[in-house]
Design a protein around this nucleic acid. Structure first.
Lengths: 242, 242
DNA sequence: GAACGCTTGTGAACGATCGCACAAAGTCTG
DNA sequence: CAGACTTTGTGCGATCGTTCACAAGCGTTC
């Protein structure tokens, strides 16, 4: 996907679900939840794929990695499939998450992951700004940076989010790892170095914009040379006509 | 008489750059900028790859798609390479960007893309909240949602960012597209449907967290079944262990 | 200027992912 | 209960991306 790629060491311990599939499961989950709320009881791979913006064969193959939860000639029972996906991605686990850096971005994240019960619980908001420390955001009190290790230990958090300026990212990362965090979501525009066994995913707003700008530029050049581009809905990338 | 070889030749001049490479160019650009500021004049693919967190062969192949800008036996001249990458990704173009939805996320984006000259210029901040309209954020005045089309037309913006709640995303998207926007960065957790020719990239904070949670769960299961990930050796090489 | 060491650029093998197309397996109808 | 119809699950080839390994090229040294 597009997309950002996480370094994943160690896998295959269970039944090896491809990374590309894992990246799509949350989308299926969200759409299925929406369908369930709409009272839909059964759905075919074509219908579901349409709404999720993917190929129906891809969707079926993705689901087949979890098991055979469909019924031939009928489709998938929404509630059952939803349950199976939720179980697979650890939806019900309520993972404790610590967010470091409570600027606008950290704030947005706190509200996002904290409000809807998405399987996460914000157990720590941490910032070095004395004006922020002590405030309560999304029901959680902001703690000082020096308490980072304490907060993590208190809740046995294993997932950390870095929403600090780039200059602080590596230092924060090191402290997270030293405290036992093994999964990190990094929003700072910097490359993090971590020991083996730690999973880092990077989301870079600037990079995303620049990728769009690149495609936009290609399109402009394409117009100049008389090329047209066609593309349907989701998924990035431009067209390459032979 | 047009031969297939001729077509291949033509393709090279425009975009023969793989998506995966495009996604990494902004990272190279950022690291090179940093190196330039540090006074580094020349860098080898190994050094640069190390800092960027990628394989050196991959980096060389990525750069080779832009042209032969290195010197064998020496490496790459930082300033020259930086210029070439900047040109390729349209860094100097100062793309006009419109952001719809000025919540925490929109705010963060405005500050991010607006401050550092990353090749973008925020020309419009749009929200439907009357309390926000009229405020100035990152040097730009927030305009009402009804003015969306006007703002886009004013600046001929072709890149739009959706940072609204999911419920509003598709409607906003439709209006952006109708106004001529052909590149959209979507932060709302919803699948957008767009006509052909429009490029959509999706950044979903919840999905990213859930992917991390999945890996975390896999790790936990691995531990429970007694399977530990060996290979703790920090040295390179030593890949094939049976 | 020839020999040597270093680094780029790239052909080729490999691996992951995608999408087609179809058999398998179910429902429905008469 | 047989045959028509529907939809899943998947084998297989095509495509895309990564990594290896090495020839080609550059600078330096003797």
């Amino acid at each position: 996907m597009p997309s950002p790629a996480g370094i994943t060491e160690l896998r295959k311990s269970t039944h090896a679900i491809p990374d590309a599939t894992v990246a799509r499961l949350p989308i299926y989950h969200r759409v299925l939840t929406s369908l369930l709320e709409s009272g839909v009881e059964s759905v075919s791979s074509h219908e579901l794929a349409e709404v999720c913006g993917v190929n129906s064969a891809k969707l079926r193959k993705d689901l087949s990695h979890l098991g055979s939860y469909g019924t031939r000639g009928v489709g998938y029972r929404v509630e059952y499939l939803l349950f199976q996906i939720a179980r697979e991605i650890g939806y019900a686990q309520d993972w404790p998450v610590v967010i470091v850096g409570v600027g606008n971005l950290g704030n947005a994240l706190a509200g996002y992951a904290g409000s809807a019960d998405r399987g996460f619980r914000i157990v720590g908001l941490i910032d070095s700004d004395a004006d922020l420390v002590g405030q309560t955001i999304a029901g959680v009190e902001v703690r000082d940076l020096v308490e980072l290790e304490t907060v993590i230990a208190e809740h046995s958090a294993s997932i950390g989010v870095i929403a600090t300026p780039a200059s602080a990212a590596q230092a924060v990362c090191d402290r997270l790892v030293a405290s036992g965090v093994t999964s990190i979501l990094n929003f700072a525009p910097s490359v993090l170095t971590v020991p083996q066994g730690v999973d880092v995913r990077k989301v870079d707003l600037g990079t995303e914009l620049q990728i769009l700008a690149f495609h936009q530029q290609q399109r402009a050049e394409g117009l100049r040379t008389g090329k047209t581009s066609k593309r349907t809905s989701p998924s990035p990338a431009l067209e390459n006509i032979s």
